[in-house]
Nucleic acid binder design. Structure first.
Length: 344
DNA sequence: AGCAGTAGATGCGGGGTACT
DNA sequence: AGTACCCCGCATCTACTGCT
């Protein structure tokens, strides 16, 4: 049987290929997946359903399905509730599609999905109906057992914070900005894809040319890797207001005496004509993090973000830049990357 | 055999404590 | 009361060890 990781990747690619509109039913979607992978996936219906939810978010509370696809055990993650208290009340409900709220395990999935929202944006206490096991539960590792005591909220900061990536590392992970966890995940995918683990000691990483540029060594191990990786992860100012209540930030600022703008490792990138027009300042080069910050400033200033579903509703100016009417919050940096180029 | 815990690094939020 | 600081948990990865 295919691994969950492979299956998740396959679900993602299929969703991207066809778009949300192409998913008419879970059965149909599974059939497409089965054709792609050449195996029976009926036992994975629940997992696939969860993956679709993670990818599409609250736009798709549940993929329409018949009761035969998700068996009784799997469907225990969902509890049918009266329409009035639906978690997704702001979404027009389709006829014949049951509404659900999450029991604890799926609440974790939902919380994970919200990771890129700031805590003041995502407030389950106001969006979710009162529940003995509210979606306020912290993000937990899959290994953790069910009866986790209520802890403080996880929130979008910390490890989920989106950081900038140096051009060297960008050639590996493929994105200009990512969460640290995502960077590590993509890096490991790259290592496996290129078979860079020492067969005798799989903790050891043999660097190819691209990786050598990043790590500046011929080989490293999985523990040192994160340390080396840190040099290529650049904090973005947008996700954290300068002078906010971060105790450590205050401490490090005091100790180091560093202005935020002087943090090294960033490169000036050439601005596309479209982005230059959007910025309207006449400048032709910009730091990647600064470009992202300005776009987000514009989005916030014009109240273009729908905090309920973390979508950006593009006005005419943004439509000219991104060539679309709406975009997910997490997709902004990706779209922006098409307007920034390395200097030749 | 299968599962849980551990190793290491990262940045941030928040609880707890100590001090002014 | 307000400020400063320490410490922990969080996610992610793989290989290994110890326990059931």
């Amino acid at each position: 049987m295919v691994s969950d990781q492979v299956l998740a990747n396959c679900v993602e690619s299929l969703v991207r290929e066809g778009g949300a509109a192409s998913i008419t039913s879970l059965e149909n979607f599974i059939r497409q997946l089965e054709a792609k992978l050449g195996m029976d996936l009926s036992s994975k219906a629940s997992f696939i359903n969860e993956q679709i939810y993670i990818l599409l978010g609250p736009h798709f509370p549940q993929v329409p399905t018949s009761s035969s696809v998700i068996d009784a055990a799997d469907s225990s993650h969902f509890t049918q509730i009266p329409a009035a208290s639906c978690l997704f009340d702001h979404i027009p409900r389709q006829p014949n599609v049951p509404s659900f709220r999450f029991t604890a395990p799926m609440a974790l999935v939902a919380a994970t999905h919200q990771e890129h929202l700031t805590h003041h944006q995502y407030n389950p206490a106001t969006t979710a109906a009162p529940d003995p096991a509210p979606a306020r539960a912290p993000v937990a590792s899959p290994k953790e057992s069910a009866p986790a005591a209520p802890k403080r909220r996880g929130g979008p900061g910390g490890l989920s914070k989106v950081c900038g990536v140096t051009p060297e590392l960008q050639t590996i992970v493929g994105e200009p900005t990512m969460a640290r966890t995502e960077i590590v995940k993509q890096l490991w995918a790259y290592i496996r894809r290129n078979n860079l683990q020492d067969p005798n000691n799989k903790r050891k990483i043999i660097c190819n040319d691209e990786l050598r540029l990043v790590f500046e060594t011929d080989s490293t191990d999985m523990f040192k890797m994160n340390k080396l990786l840190a040099k290529h992860i650049i904090p973005l100012e947008h996700t954290k207001e300068p002078g906010s209540d971060s105790k450590r930030q205050k401490k490090s600022d005091r100790e180091v005496g560093v202005e935020p703008e002087s943090q090294g490792g960033q490169y000036l990138l050439v601005i596309s004509d479209g982005l230059a027009e959007f910025l309207g300042t006449g400048e032709r080069e910009i730091l990647q993090s600064e470009a992202l910050k300005r776009v987000w400033d514009y989005i916030e200033a014009n109240h273009l973000e729908d905090h309920r579903n973390s979508m950006i509703m593009c006005d005419t100016k943004l439509q000219r830049l991104f060539a679309c009417e709406s975009i997910s919050a997490s997709g902004v940096s990706k779209m922006l990357a098409h307007h920034l180029f390395k200097q030749s």
